[in-house]
Nucleic acid binder design. Structure first.
Length: 419
RNA sequence: GGAGAGGUGGCCGAGCUGGUCGAAGGCGCACGCCUGGAAAGCGUGUAGGUGCCAAAAGUGCCUCGAGGGUUCGAAUCCCUCCCUCUCCGCCA
């Protein structure tokens, strides 16, 4: 969420930003609600001030005839307060719901564009392999090698669920282990996080747990949701806290399952593991001082590049354009791996600098040594490894004519042999 | 799941027979004195949010887990919920 004062004072900028992101938000309604809320808040404060004044003046013993009118006035004020407060709350709630729709500001260097077609390729690393045979896609590979059971997944849990089998299980575990080891080397504190989280944490991170286009599974009869990423549980971990400046930056790595309803994306990229309802992921998260977040963002990209370089997967780095940025992201870089089965690049990581957008709602601040007050931290998240997508890239790039699949040495696994 | 105890400022911890409490004391932190320098010691200061004000000063409002209630007045009394701890039960 943006600061309401910024929205008021940088209106033109906010409007332009909303336009650049291809969003439609009724900013005038927000500003009107803000006016109302502020005016009513002033009234409310004045009523309360008088109430406090009255009760303060009645602390000592008093003659009954002096006391009675004060008690009476206090009583009346209480009623007026309740009435004004109700109106204030309504205005405040409206303001808040509109305010939370306003996207973060955007980094000036982020490319202008409507959708993912206009993302900007920054560099390509590694070479897509040349096969002297027709490469298979991961679905054919995995079924041939008995590494996956999509039909079983569909029977038990529905479309877009799957069972990993045999070497794929070891591969998933090895990849998690590998990514975790690298994150430890890079100074991250590692977590295996809850796979569920409270709705208000999801809200704070910027996920919309409700509504028709939600990506989020809700748990009935509770205020819990299945997490869509450990970004939610890692970012939420420090909600409401004030951090000592010298502890920053805080680097957290988290392993979780990720659950996504994928509402509205039926049919698109639907084959195999590319878009599924559940997958495992190792996630990076950072809390930094505002002046350090840009550098941290670059560092997180470089960690991702290290991971995919060591895995020997050809990839490119993409600078996400304004229209393709999520609302909380100030800037976002994706890594896209070469996927021979699709004969194109496919997103395998995504790392966002969300500046103070999430911190404001989650109320995560830090205290500067010797300075008065607190400041909001900057929060960044990035994929270390999303297991389903990484598996696609590994299997498709590693396939050989004899039907075997070569795996990178760093995983410590034997190549997968044909049945 | 059952019984009990508890959730207070950056941290620890008093207050909880309603008003003098945004809150003792300590730690930490900042500044100063002391010192050749440091430690110790001494002194002073130190919660957050938000509004008014150009800003500072000042001042209003809110916040003692969350929400509601009683009252002129609630950290303190009542109710609901959440969380933590101890014991018991159950279980991997």
């Amino acid at each position: 969420m943006l600061d309401m004062r910024d929205i008021r004072e940088r209106q033109d900028e906010v409007r332009e930003n909303i336009r650049n992101r291809g969003m439609e938000i009724d900013l005038d309604a927000l500003l009107a609600a803000d006016e109302d809320a502020r005016r009513l808040r002033g009234e409310l404060d004045e009523i309360r001030r008088r109430r406090n004044e009255i009760s303060g003046s009645m602390k000592g013993p008093m003659k009954p005839e002096e006391r009675a009118p004060l008690v009476e006035e206090g009583r009346q004020l209480k009623e007026r307060e309740a009435e004004v407060e109700e109106r204030y709350r309504a205005a405040d709630e409206l303001r808040r719901s509109l305010q939370s729709q306003v996207p973060n500001f955007t980094h000036p260097d982020a490319p202008l564009g409507r959708d993912d077609m206009e993302n900007k390729e920054l560099r390509v690393v590694g070479e897509p392999p040349r096969f002297d045979f027709k490469p298979l896609d991961h679905v054919d590979l995995m079924e041939r090698l008995d590494l996956v059971d999509f039909e079983g997944g569909a029977k038990v849990a529905g479309q877009k669920f799957y069972y990993l089998k045999n070497e794929a299980v070891l591969l998933e575990l090895a990849l998690m282990q590998f990514a975790s080891r690298i994150l430890r080397e890079e100074g991250f504190t590692m977590f295996i996080t809850p796979d569920l989280a409270r709705r208000d944490i999801l809200d704070g991170i910027g996920f919309n747990p409700r509504g028709e286009s939600t990506q989020i599974y809700n748990i009935e009869n509770s205020d819990l949701c299945l997490v869509a990423t450990a970004e939610i549980t890692l970012g939420g971990l420090l909600s409401g806290e004030i951090i000592e400046e010298e502890r920053l930056p805080l680097l957290y790595g988290g392993i979780s399952h990720c659950f996504r309803t994928e509402a509205g994306s039926a049919g698109r990229e639907s084959r195999g593991l590319y878009r599924v309802h559940q997958f495992s992921k190792v996630e990076m998260f950072a809390f930094t001082r505002p002046e350090d977040s840009a550098e941290m963002h670059d560092r997180m990209v470089s960690i991702e590049e290290r991971i995919y370089t060591e895995l020997g997967i050809p990839y490119r780095v993409v600078d996400i354009c304004t229209g393709d940025l999520g609302a909380p992201a100030y800037r976002k870089f994706d890594l896209e791996a070469w996927m021979p089965g699709r004969e194109r690049w496919g997103e395998i990581t995504s790392t966002s600098n969300c500046t103070d957008y999430q911190a404001r709602r989650l109320d995560i601040r830090y205290k500067e040594k010797g300075a008065k007050g607190t400041r909001l931290v900057h929060m960044l998240n990035g994929t270390a490894i999303a297991l389903s997508r990484a598996m696609i890239a590994l299997l498709e790039n590693g396939q050989r004519a004899d039907g075997s699949i070569s795996l990178p040495k760093c995983l410590g696994l034997a190549d997968i042999q044909p049945r």
